[in-house]
Design a protein around this nucleic acid. Sequence first.
DNA 1: CGTTATCTTGAAAGATTTCAACCAATGTGG
DNA 2: CCACATTGGTTGAAATCTTTCAAGATAACG
Lengths: 229, 229
Amino acid sequence: MQAEVQTRRSPNGTPDRPKGDLWTRSVLDRFEPFSCAVAIPRAQAIRGRADQAEFCWRILSGCVRTVEWLGGGRRQIGAFLWPGELLGIDDGSEHCTDAEAVTEVALRRYPRRMIETAAQNDTELALWLLTMTARELSSARQHIALLGHKTAIGKIATFLLAQDRRATSFERRFVELPMSRGDIADHLGLSTETVCRNLVHLQHIGTVRLSSSGIDLRDRVGLLKLAVE
Amino acid sequence: MQAEVQTRRSPNGTPDRPKGDLWTRSVLDRFEPFSCAVAIPRAQAIRGRADQAEFCWRILSGCVRTVEWLGGGRRQIGAFLWPGELLGIDDGSEHCTDAEAVTEVALRRYPRRMIETAAQNDTELALWLLTMTARELSSARQHIALLGHKTAIGKIATFLLAQDRRATSFERRFVELPMSRGDIADHLGLSTETVCRNLVHLQHIGTVRLSSSGIDLRDRVGLLKLAVE
DNA sequence: CGTTATCTTGAAAGATTTCAACCAATGTGG
DNA sequence: CCACATTGGTTGAAATCTTTCAAGATAACG
C-alpha cells in the first residue's frame, strides 16, 4: 500500500509504475513462460503443506478458501479468494495454510521460488511483493477487529458487505455465496447454526433475501448499521 | 520471512545479508543521522492518526500497545511491543492505528517517508521492508486463529506463553505484565472480568502465581495444554 | 429415485458479558 | 501525616449470547 503511494510520487525520477491490478499483471507477465494453467474440481485441495512455498496462483475463475488447521479438527478460514486475486504470494514458509477450491476453479500457477529469487535483484519486484503483503496485512487486521469485538450479527453483516464489495462488480445487489454455512462459520469464528439463524433473521427483517446460489442485499444501509455491532 | 530464507541461499551470487535483528540494525543505522530519541510518559500517545505515515520507531525500553478504535468506544489492541521491536514500519496509510505507551517508553524515531522513498531504488531496503511486513502478517494470522477458535482460558494461556517467549530472554519463568487487565481483554477479545477470573483460576490450579508487577509461570506444560483450547 | 450432504429449526446447556459492589493501591490536598 | 478521591483489580449474581445436541427439511448427486 505504502509503496503504491510512493510510486505515484515518483521520487528521484523513478519511472512511474502501473498501479494496482495493472501492476500485478505487468509483473506476472514476466513469468508467464514459466506458468501453467490448472483446473481444480470443487472441494479439492489446491495445495497441501508439501508444496507450500513452491508455487503461487492467480485465480481466473471460481472461488478459493484458505484454511488453517488447529487442534481438534477445528479450522480457521482465512479468506475467500475470487478471480483476479492471488494465492500464496505472501505466505511465510512456517505457517501451514492450505487452500481448497470452493467451486470449480481455474488458476494460473506461477513459480513462486523463481519470483522470490528474482526479487533479490529486482527492486520493482520486491516492491510489488511488499505491496501485496501489506495489503494482506491490512485486511488481516480488519479481520482481527471483526473477530475480537463484533457480535454474531455484526460479523455476518460485515462479511456480506465485504463479499458484495469484491465479488459483484457488475451485477449489483446480488452476492454469490458458493461457500457453505460451515465455511462462513469457520471464517467468522461462529458455529454453522449461528450463521444460519442470523442469515434467516436478516431475511425476516427484510434486509436480505436468501436464494440457493447466493443472497440478495435489499438494504445495504441497514446492513452497514448492523455491521458495527 | 521468505526473503530471509532466500538470503541464506544467496542465489545468483547475491551477497549474504545479516539476518534478523542484525539485519534490522544494519538497515536502520543508515538512517541514524536522521533519527532522534524520544521519551514518552506512561499512558501517553506515541502517535495519533495525524503523523500516521511520517515516522516509525524502534523501541529501546518499556512497552507499547497498538490500538485501533472501533465504533462505540470499543478498541482492539493489536499487539504489545517490547524493546528491539519496530512500530509503524509496515502500516498501510489507510488504517488508523494509534500507539500508546503502556509504561514509560524510550524510543528512537526514524523518518519513515525517507526510508520508503529510499526503498524505491534500493532492493535490500525493499526486501527488508518485505521481511518485516511478512513477519507482521504471520503473527496477525496467528492472532486470527486465536480470536476465532479459542476459548477464554485458551486465549489467556496463549497470551501468557507469547509474552513469556518475547519479553523474558534472561530472567526465566517470570513474565512482566505492565499492561492492565483491560488492555489484555481488548487484545484477546474478552471482557476485563473474564481475564481476571481466568487469571485467578490459573493461580488456583497452581499453573501461575500472580504478583503486582507480573506473573510467575509455574507450569509451562500445563499452560501449553490449555493454550490449544 | 434413493442416498448423502447441507441447511434449517428447536430446546437445553454452557460460556461470557454485564451490572454492581467491594477491595487494594496510589496520589493529592489539607 | 491522614482523610479522601481515583484508578485498577477482584468477586458475585443475573442476563445474554452462542454453542451444542437433536431432529426434520431441503437440495444435490450418482
